[in-house]
Nucleic acid binder design. Structure first.
Lengths: 196, 196, 196, 196
DNA sequence: AATGAATGAGGATTCATTCAT
DNA sequence: AATGAATGAATCCTCATTCAT
């Protein structure tokens, strides 16, 4: 095997391992919160030794912050594209809502919500959310306004209505233990909050 | 002072202290979750020494479970009275919703919600909620059905709609850090979920 | 017991405990260096639990730094008084030398010397010594010069000669395992370095 | 290339690598002590991977012991030749002193001294020094006695005077951080200890 | 009843050592 | 022979709980 390949191979291992740790951490942090998550749990979930975590992250805190930052970036990216989705404003926001409720994103939103909500997280995380609240809502405002103008959405201060709407969705996602019988509410029901 | 009075006085001190500890614990558990709460924080909030907690509760776990049980009992009691509130079913449920969102009850609901959703709580608490879910919704179902019949509420499986509705309200209450600008959503907006 | 007495009693316990920990730490740090000293060793030497150390010092590092700082202060204080000792400059410096070699001060000098010498100490300690080197020698210089003038001491740049002299004494003190047969060199022999 | 040459080549690589590791280890152990030295530091100083150390030494402990033993052997060898150096006993011992203080030998003496004085070294090392103390001094005694007889050295129990003298020199060598301005004391000043 | 000093089990983190490549 | 990823025992530190006063 050529030296180049060898290096590539190691890089790949590192990338995979890092990803593996982040996935495991995401799952546990989302369910048990920052303090409730023990590094041993993350190691077990990732099927690695506890020590290995520290070759990839300097501390539990750094791991947590990294997760929050990356998820936040991704969220921002996604929200920018809502305006380019097909359909009316109502349909665009319904699609966004559906995506948020999707199983694949669930842990991410749960973690974000816990991170935003809980008082036992690193200060830096608190900061990130203080700075970012509007960043998430701003790109949706023009869409919502267009929907109000066309009568699809009910009147009301747009920023306020959207803040409430996303607060509800986010907080829903925090819950791992959703009612087993009925699961999470439909996007169709949730969007009623905006339509009256 | 007679021995009896003396005894009564001591009992009263004990009751007051116990209540004081519970109030402090409620506040901190609600904000920081079970693991995130240190007994030292509770002691500080209650302005007592750390050791004193253990004259009133055998352990942090027992204190937490006691809180959850008592709050649960209270919730059950309140729900039974919804049917006797004045007004139409819609108005009754709106009043209930308002009460739940009220500042005075907030910590209680926050704690309950955290207790219900988090994975880092004592097993016993998990059990309590597994057994109790329906207990909370059942007494409201007939009211909701009446509202559907009178056209105040939109159609749909009652247990499902109410489960979603309360899931939303509960999950909202988890959030200590509500948007500072807008606060929690109005009961009037939330109830749209049931009315369409 | 009056509340005041109670408070005094607690203060005394705290003072004693703190002193006890410092004494134990001094002994172990002096012999095993910073890294070689485990908190468990300090606890054992002080006959307390490992955890208790942390009610008195925030970290092993803080404990070490505290020791160094306090010993340094004491050293400075003592050196100021050398000029007021009875006798000629030669006799004054011989007395100082004897004091330094005294068993009671030994651990203190050993620790200081290790702290000054080793590369595995907290940065702050390195700084302290960088700033302090001259502070220790300066008050002795005039005494030495007087001795040179009177012919008691051999000629040579005073700061240089004294720097060498104290380097030797300090470094001697680092050694716990002194030759069992002969012990540390006499002050009378050491002072030859200055007299020729 | 013949198999033999191939083998020789490999042997040579092995020897070089082993030497390289020992040199690096010497430098770090000398400065940071046994416990304060991490294998990763040695690897970095030797510009090799951490794992490679273990193809040449079974453990950090073995590496340390090996160093001490080899340096000790070398020291013994050198001391034997002091009597054959040119000049009077005084001049012979001054030359020895100069050699000891020489930069090239410095790390070796530093390590030896740390190994001798510190309490955090493997037991075997402690033993080596317990057995060897006299070995170092013995060959110098007749030289010193000759010097006393000729009046070059001051009177006094020879073993005692030499023990003190070498204790001083050794302990000086422990110090990596010598006063930057003046460096280590001259051999000419040190030897005053023996001359009065 | 109340305090706060003390304990020790458990959690985060480090580092000597092993192992697959 | 050499690398560096991986392990886990040992270390520093925290915190629920106990105990002397």
């Amino acid at each position: 095997m050529s030296p180049l390949n060898r290096q590539q191979q190691l890089d790949q291992i590192r990338d995979e391992r890092r990803e593996q740790i982040k996935q495991a951490a995401l799952k546990i942090f989302a369910r048990r919160g920052y303090t409730g998550t023990k590094t041993s749990m993350i190691a077990k979930e990732a099927s690695i030794s506890e020590g290995l975590i520290y070759r990839y992250f300097n501390s539990k805190e750094e791991l947590f912050i990294t997760l929050v930052e990356e998820l936040m970036e991704e969220a921002k990216r996604e929200l920018k594209y809502v305006g380019y989705l097909p359909g009316t404003p109502f349909e665009q926001i319904r699609t966004l809502t559906k995506n948020m409720l999707d199983d694949n994103n669930m842990y991410a939103f749960m973690l974000m919500e816990r991170a935003r909500t809980a008082d036992d997280v690193p200060d830096k995380v608190t900061q990130i959310f203080e700075e970012a609240t509007n960043v998430l809502i701003d790109p949706i405002i023009p869409i919502f306004v267009k929907g109000q103008e066309s009568g699809e959405f009910s009147p009301g201060e747009p920023r306020k209505m959207l803040s409430w709407y996303f607060t509800i969705i986010n907080s829903l996602l925090t819950q791992e233990k959703i009612d087993e019988e009925f699961g999470l509410p439909d996007a169709d029901v949730l969007i009623r909050i905006l339509t009256n």
